[in-house]
Computed example of a mutant assay.
Amino acid sequence: MSRSDLASVLAGARAEGRAVAAFNVIQLEHAEAYATAAERVGLPVVMQISENCVRYHGSLAPIALATLAIADACDQPVVVHLDHAEDTALVEEAVRLGLMSVMFDGSTLPDDANRAETARVVALCHAAGVGVEAELGEVGGKDGVHAPGVRTDPTDAARFVADTGVDALAVAVGSSHAMTDRTAELDTDLIAALRDSVPVPLVLHGSSGVPDDGLVAAVKAGMTKVNVATHLNQVFTRAMTGRLEASPTVDTRKYLGAARDAVADEAARLLQLLALR
């Protein structure tokens, strides 16, 4: 299976009424954990590299090429995705490197500029067979559209998709980025209305703050791609520090390996949860 394109992976999930999990890659151990999880449960996975991650590493190519190599070795479909890219030059580099999809984030731009720039990115990416995810406005945790009380209007969402040609749309339904507790309450009626109004798969950002039953309800209501980052970072950190406290060592393989194994276990659980298994 290995590398797959976003549109076909999401189309398959949407047709079956399930969702695909999208997990953030920061260290190489993350990508290894997600591949292990996908193989263990026999489900596709999206491995996301954010623009923030690129800044952390200093460039896109090393982490992207390593993640693509792990995707190529995986026996399940893997989409390697550039997440929350605001820099179109970075989008162009991702396409050259062979990433299969990008999330272009023009949410801080004025509405007309966001639509125009998103449409330009879609044209560039589609010419290379690369899928594009986008959103109408800034996601919560960044004082924007997913802040408490802010919601995506179904009519606006449908018009944005028509204006831009995106393959997937991130919508505001009650979640927020970077939550460390799982207390967010999603508006499932709005998710269903968006599903009926928008012709492309819906994406839930900020899913780390949503409890399991809320995630399942969101999928049943119409979510197709579910992004999880902070929650898995917490799993990684707890396992790493726990291993160091239990058995101090300077061998980084010991504690990073423990963190990788813990993330693989939780990623596998989430993959199955979102597939409604």
Rank of each mutant, 00 (worst) to 15 (best):
D5E: 10
D5S: 02
L6W: 05
V9Y: 07
V9H: 05
A11L: 09
A11G: 14
R14S: 14
E16H: 13
A19P: 11
V20M: 04
A21R: 05
A22L: 11
F23D: 04
V25F: 00
I26C: 11
I26G: 02
Q27I: 05
E32D: 12
A33H: 04
A37P: 12
L43G: 01
P44C: 01
V46P: 01
V54F: 03
V54E: 15
Y56G: 12
G58A: 08
G58T: 03
I63T: 02
L65V: 11
L65P: 10
T67K: 04
A69T: 08
D72F: 01
D72L: 03
A73E: 12
P77C: 01
V78P: 00
V78T: 00
V78L: 00
V78A: 00
V80H: 01
L82Y: 13
D83Y: 08
H84K: 12
E86K: 14
T88W: 12
E92G: 05
E93Y: 07
L97Q: 03
G98A: 05
L99D: 03
V102A: 09
G106D: 07
P110F: 01
R115M: 04
R115C: 05
A123L: 01
C125W: 00
H126T: 02
H126A: 03
G129K: 02
V130E: 08
E133Y: 09
E135S: 08
G137N: 11
E138G: 12
D143R: 14
A147V: 05
D153F: 02
T155A: 15
F160V: 03
A162C: 05
D167Y: 06
A168S: 15
A168D: 07
A172P: 14
T180H: 10
R182D: 06
L186G: 06
L186R: 11
L194Y: 06
D196R: 12
P201V: 00
L204A: 06
G206W: 12
S207H: 12
S207I: 03
G209R: 10
V216Q: 11
M223L: 15
K225R: 12
V226S: 10
V226W: 07
N227R: 05
A229M: 11
N233C: 13
V235Y: 05
R238A: 14
A239P: 10
T241N: 14
L244R: 11
E245W: 08
E245I: 11
A246M: 09
T249H: 08
V250D: 15
R253F: 14
Y255L: 05
A258M: 10
A259T: 09
A259E: 13
D261H: 05
V263M: 13
A264P: 12
A268C: 03
R269I: 02
R269A: 13
L270V: 04
Q272Y: 01
